[in-house]
Design a protein around this nucleic acid. Structure first.
Lengths: 193, 193
DNA sequence: GTCTATATTCGGATAGAC
DNA sequence: GTCTATCCGAATATAGAC
């Protein structure tokens, strides 16, 4: 049950941090959400302090993100635009899974630079790289081939921007649904002169 | 000098909030940064409390953003891709000016829903609308014409995503500079089948 | 309007019983 | 491992002199 409590604390903290921010969540609130008595020091039997909890939490979630199996691709359907649209929708779902971690990054930036750097090098650079391969194989248009790396970053940036707008404003932020958005982005990437 | 101090407090708070987050900045630090004695209650002669300061600050910055004169356009140079590239670089500079306000939005979300809604309806919707007009006049390609609203949101999302990556990771986040990014996005939007 | 000083509340963290 | 009780430091906010 010892390890069980530790994980329950991490789960509770993840939800609270994503919602309110790390600094704004007192340890007492974490204890309460984890089923411990608020104000008892029970938390401190599992973590030296709040900082150590954040580190452990990020470790766990980053590992989960890395080990996530990409969903199987239906390679055999439709034209390039359709295939890319489907992939982009899947990527948006992945971003949503990553959401809490992203929010914590946002709140911890400045206070925890090496956390930020880990996320950047682990997730961001890998996304650019795989995005570049994806876009080159599915949308080898002239605009893409001129600078595939930049095209991949446009794709990634658009996805992240849309996701964040959806998260920070009540969803949907604008008149465009996730479906329409993915389709428009795919169409732009695959439109051949 | 009374109003002068009030504005100095807002200036100081804007910088501190953008850097560390609202919750993490004590009133004493704002006083110090505004040239008042830290720990003196001098702050409270100008604002009832920190919440009221945040409201006043957002009011001021939102008004500034609304009243900002868009930089004059050199209408007469180059092809559509070049013109759009230049515009996008200008928009990125505008986003950088808006940066502190965006960071505060990010930190206050959840604690201050009507602030978020004001920013969404004031800035976000206006950006979609003007972006749609822009993209239709400069890049009336087939992909854009099929769903101009979605294309505008792709453009806006990509800009915001790039800007945030630049801000939250040390700049530049990836191997792609702002110039390369703007050019690639413009090329994608204007590439005609 | 700004200062010194202070009352108060709250969050972080520890001690020791069970 | 979790509880009750408690200490300490930091942050909000006020009182009253200048």
């Amino acid at each position: 049950m010892a390890t069980g409590t530790r994980d329950r604390i991490i789960d509770a903290a993840l939800a609270l941090f994503a919602e309110r921010g790390v600094a704004a969540v007192p340890v007492t609130a974490i204890e309460a959400a984890a089923g411990l008595a608020a104000g008892s020091g029970a938390f401190y039997r599992h973590f030296r302090n709040k900082t150590e909890l954040v580190d452990a939490l990020v470790d766990r979630e980053l590992t989960r993100a890395r080990d996530r199996v990409p969903p199987a691709r239906d390679e055999a359907d439709g034209n390039a635009t359709e295939v890319l649209t489907t992939r982009l929708r899947g990527d948006l779902d992945f971003l949503r899974e990553l959401g809490p971690l992203i929010h914590i990054l946002v709140w911890e930036r400045g206070r925890n630079p090496e956390l930020v750097e880990r996320l950047r090098s682990t997730v961001f650079e890998a996304s650019i790289e795989s995005g570049m391969a994806e876009v080159l194989s599915l949308a080898p248009t002239q605009a893409v081939q001129e600078d595939p790396e930049a095209a991949a970053q446009v794709m990634l940036s658009a996805m992240v921007g849309f996701f964040l707008a959806e998260e920070y404003y009540g969803r949907p932020a604008g008149p465009v649904s996730a479906d329409r958005f993915a389709r428009a982005l795919a169409a732009l990437l695959t439109s051949e002169p």
